[in-house]
Each structure stands twice: as C-alpha cells, then as structure tokens.
C-alpha cells in the first residue's frame, strides 16, 4: 500500500532534526487549588521513541500529557514540543496542534459527521485541502486502522474499539510529528482493547513518536522504548522497559507487583 507511506512520520534529517529531543519537559509544576498535581516533572522524548507514562490514578500522568498539548496551564517550568515553547505566553496553539496529535479515552468523535467526514474536517479546514484529496487521505488513514469499510457510517454505528481507531485515524490524517494517547483503552473491554493496541503497535513500528498514558502493563513492556513511572506528581523512576523487572524504588515495585503483568 504505497499511500500509507504518506502518513509515516517525518523522517529524521528534515527540518527539526537539529532540535532534539522532540519533546522536553523541564521542572513542570501545576496545582489544582491546594493540590500539587505536577511537582517538578522533567522528561525527554526523542524522535521515534515510544514513551509510556505509568502510575497510580491521581499521580499526574494525564495532566502531564495534557500540558504537552497546551490543554492545561502550568505555573512553572518549560515544555518544548517540536520547536514550540508551550510555556510561552505567545504560544501559537494552532501551530502546536498541527504538529501534535492527541487521542482521548472518550474518543470524542464528532457525532454529526460520518467517519470519513470526521477525518476530512481538519485537513480541509486547517490545511485547505481539497475535498477529493482529503477523502483519499481519509480512506488511507482508515485502511491503516483496519476500518476501510466504515467510511460512510456514523460514529454511533461503531463499537467503542472501532470509534477509538477512527479517532486515531483522524489524528493521523493531520500527519502529526508526535502522537499523545491518553488512556485510550480504559473504556474498552479486553477484545476491543486488543484491536486498538494492535493499531498503536503498528504506529510504533512505523517509527511514530508516541507518548502514552496507559494501564496496560503488558503493552508497555512490549512497545515502550522508555517507561516513565510517576508517583505523587513526580517522575519517580524512568528507564527502558526492562526497568519494570528490576524496580529501583519500593513504590514502583509495589505498583508492578499489584498491577497486571
């Protein structure tokens, strides 16, 4: 399938190859009222890496992810994403969002549009792409998530797993340089989870830079090039996937001990 190549992330060596890493958080701090959700979070993600953020509920994983896409404000620290300074007051949010794709737990497809129209919306609106061209792109993106036959259906006619795959395709069609996944399988049963994870594994294999928050430890072991374990708003431990087998802290050891392997 030659068209699929169009959706591959930008190869290293092009414009921002000099700006490594692709995503860098430095001492990010954020409070919700008196609660400090992010307490000096720092980590880096290189181009082509798959970073998996794990941790208990309330440890700040999702908030950290949302900060990267400027969906949450943070009080201190800096975040650089694909050359955009997210902490900057003059941040061009739309430019940031052209480079960053995000997929949510609740899919958030547009219910009044067909699957294909959902995917075509941003390319036609934001990139002024012609309808025919956008439709072609949508079909390619759908084929990539294994839903080529669902183009003209409405989201409500699909299963949760299929909706989530459409959401991934919608994001992919904008050809982001980084993709963020915020607990994208948490609302799905094991079978549907598996089909979504398969799609994500394919993306990882194709070299997409990905940051994901997940509770699927098996998946984390399989695809992660870097694991970030968060505890009480801090990066408690981070390293390659193998670190799950030799936890350095008792918190991580308890977390993987009680979690599903």
């Amino acid at each position: 399938m030659s068209a699929t190549a169009n959706l591959a992330p930008m190869a290293p060596g092009t414009d921002e190859a000099t700006v490594t890493p692709l995503v860098r958080l430095a001492n990010v701090q954020k409070s919700f009222g008196a609660v400090k959700v992010l307490d000096g979070v720092s980590f880096e993600v290189e181009r082509g890496e798959v970073a998996v953020i794990i941790g208990q509920s309330g440890s700040g994983k999702s908030t950290a992810l949302r900060c990267i896409d400027a969906l949450e404000k943070f009080e201190q620290g800096t975040i650089h994403v694909c050359g955009h300074a997210v902490h900057d007051k003059d941040l061009d949010r739309r430019a940031l969002r052209r480079d960053v794709g995000i997929v949510f737990q609740s899919y958030n497809l547009f219910p009044h549009l067909t699957v294909e129209q959902n995917i075509m919306l941003a390319p036609t609106c934001v990139k002024s792409m012609r309808k025919a061209e956008a439709r072609e792109l949508a079909r390619t993106a759908l084929a990539r998530v294994g839903l080529a036959d669902k183009a003209t259906q409405y989201p409500e006619q699909l299963s949760g797993g299929q909706q989530q795959r459409v959401a991934i395709a919608r994001s992919l069609a904008m050809m982001p340089k980084v993709m963020l996944f915020d607990e994208v399988t948490s609302a799905l049963d094991p079978q549907l989870t598996a089909e979504v994870l398969k799609v994500m594994e394919g993306l990882a294999r194709d070299g997409m830079t990905m940051i994901l928050v997940t509770h699927e430890m098996g998946f984390a072991r399989k695809v992660a090039s870097k694991i970030i374990y968060m505890y009480r708003g801090k990066v408690w431990e981070s390293g390659p996937a193998s670190m799950l087998d030799q936890p350095q802290t008792k918190e991580l050891s308890m977390f993987v001990g009680t979690g599903l392997k």
Binding site: L71, R94, R97, V100, F104, F110, L121, C125, M174
Partner: peptide
C-alpha cells in the same frame, strides 16, 4: 466540552470549531 477540546486539538480556529463542530450539534 470534550467536543470543543477535540476540535481544538485538530488545530481548528475558534470560528471553525463553532461552525463546523458545535453549532451543527446544538442546532439539532
């Protein structure tokens, strides 16, 4: 609110979010 957010994350302008995503749903 998540519909606004999803549209925002696809780099749509505020006007586009309103006219292409929110109003068609509100109209119904």
């Amino acid at each position: 609110k998540t519909q606004w957010e999803a549209a925002e994350c696809l780099a749509l302008t505020r006007w586009q979010r309103m006219t292409r995503v929110i109003l068609p749903q509100a109209l119904r």
